[in-house]
Design a binder for these strands. Structure first.
Lengths: 342, 342
DNA sequence: CTGAAAGCGCTTACAG
DNA sequence: CTGAAAGCGCTTACAG
């Protein structure tokens, strides 16, 4: 039983080499699928490995090869939002799947405070543990991305940056277009006074806001600053936002995040305003079970899982060819209309 | 500028030692807060470190000290459920916070298939990378936990095991009690024909089911197998479950997971059965935004974040004292009644 | 309190 | 195709 062997003796490459009657180098070459090895020695080594259940010590391998096959997922957004917004679990799903596929170990870095995050990222950059980093970018005044830009650490941004545009690898969602199609959907249904609940410091929210303005202009509706409310992506703030708007009597509202849209829906229900009969709401994000269960909400869907997968693949590509020009991908969004609202 | 130095030369302990005019051993001791060092040398070393921005190579440290300060979070549940059930994000939140607090690096292991998971866990156990593992246990026929039990790898189970009880460290939620209070809540409100949507192979679901039976017995209501439906924790199955039950005309239903409860709610709405006026539903899990937004659902709340934190602390404790007797903690649950249902 | 040296378990030019 | 040996960057008895 290999289990017993594992318990009674520590296996290392030296022991395997002895058992197989070859050098450590040969064992290492077999393990690394090195091409020029005689079938005879390869067989011997593989046999011993199979019998003993030997598994390489990854740490020693990392030290010797200067490669860890570990990547970090850095989410500077406060933990509070990470776990209430369906975006992050979806993104993590895509990343995790791709990491499995490419045999990468994925470590998770979440922060309670921004200061905490800056220090941690500094460490990550210099401690030599990670081959590369995946980082989400959503705040306009992000302090963490610059650390990465000024370092040698390979990274891919999920989202985009306002200040830094050139020569950084990122996978973004076309939020501008998303804001447009959400707004156009409402316009096409005949609504004229279309309010918006957005967020002033979130890049995606700002992009969606700009798409909203563009759609209004394109359809000859003048933008009315009175119909704008600001939230912080929390459900509560979505509720507050729509409360503020109700006084201005919009006939439809585009809420730029699903979490805020849920808060808005709750407030509407408390006021007995039925949606979409009395007021149309369009939310924006992935579909959490909550929304799927609620046929009264139209949403814009973004390909978040895909975004995660592409980020991993881009990072891997960057590790292979360190000097290559930056790749920037912007993924389209899609309107999701429930059957019952058609 | 330390940044420039970092870019132009690789710093290592040898270089720091030279710069400070001491031995590598002394630098290492300063870095490790070793007690018996003269203030003079300590100052010198710290000065050089501050000036250069030197950061230890973690991999070399791991290899030499045989400790990585890395822990793995293993979630054998299929990725599909991980990201639709609010339980896992909540749990991850608690774990992540505690990992930060104790300076542990947290790696995430999710699997698409069970087979895939078994192989990965085998690797993790033998590759020497992780100090310990946190693993969720929910399936009755879990194949992965035995791998851990038969290994030297320290681990803490979040949930519990049916087959293995003795000498394993676990942090569970008192699902039996949760099932009881959910059912008693319905009984106290005067309902008699109380159905249940549960799951046959999930340990927590089975425990809740048993609590439900106990509550019925305690209140002189005989258990009726006709009022039981089975799902798989997906929203769809919750809907299917309640559809099957409706034919048996229950006057209330306890759905053992929130995700399934949401599916059930959706079906009820399609049939224009209002809750709780016409039928009371009690769900069980953490509160996702969805549920918070829905005042028509009573739920049982479990202290999931706390569960995550305790798991990390227990694992840490286990790393300090390898031989110590197993610690088993069972956390109580709590009924959450929305204002509007009172 | 401090340093020289061995060792952690691998990989990888180098020489053959 | 194969092996002896150096090296990755630390830690930690050991001796003083």
């Amino acid at each position: 039983m290999s289990v017993l062997i594992l318990k009674t003796q520590k296996l290392n490459i030296k022991k395997i080499a002895e058992l197989a009657g070859v050098s450590k180098a040969t064992v290492s070459r077999v393990l690394n699928n090195y091409s020029y090895i005689s079938d005879e020695l390869r067989e011997k080594v593989l046999k011993v490995i199979a019998e003993t259940g030997y598994e390489r010590n990854q740490i020693a391998r990392m030290l010797a090869s200067n490669r860890s096959n570990m990547i970090g997922l850095v989410i500077p957004t406060g933990a509070k939002f990470v776990f209430s917004d369906p975006y992050f679990p979806k993104l993590t799903e895509g990343i995790s799947r791709a990491a499995n596929q490419y045999q990468l170990i994925l470590s998770l870095f979440l922060f309670d405070s921004h200061q905490n995050g800056i220090q941690t990222v500094r460490n990550i950059i210099t401690n030599g543990l990670f081959d590369g980093l995946l980082i989400t970018g959503d705040r306009i005044d992000d302090q963490i991305l610059p650390l990465l830009i000024n370092s040698e650490m390979p990274y891919v941004l999920m989202g985009r940056s306002i200040q830094y545009v050139d020569n950084i690898n990122y996978i973004d969602v076309d939020n501008y277009q998303g804001g447009q199609i959400a707004t156009e959907y409402l316009i096409e249904r005949g609504y004229k006074r279309i309010g918006i609940v957005t967020c002033s410091y979130n890049i995606a929210a700002v992009d969606r806001f700009n798409g909203y303005k563009q759609a209004l202009t394109d359809h000859g509706i003048s933008f009315d600053p009175e119909l704008v409310a600001y939230g912080d992506f929390s459900m509560e703030s979505g509720g507050e936002g729509i409360k503020a708007l109700i006084a201005r009597q919009p006939d439809a509202v585009f809420v730029v995040s699903d979490t805020m849209a849920l808060g808005a829906l709750r407030v509407l229900r408390e006021h007995n305003i039925r949606v979409p009969e009395d007021m149309a709401i369009v939310g924006f994000d992935d579909l959490p079970p909550a929304v799927q269960a609620d046929p009264q909400l139209t949403t814009v869907r973004q390909p978040t899982t895909e975004q995660g997968r592409l980020a991993v693949e881009t990072l891997l590509d960057l590790l292979e060819s360190p000097g290559r020009p930056a790749r920037q991908i912007v993924l389209p969004t899609e309107l999701v209309v429930r059957a019952s609202t058609i």
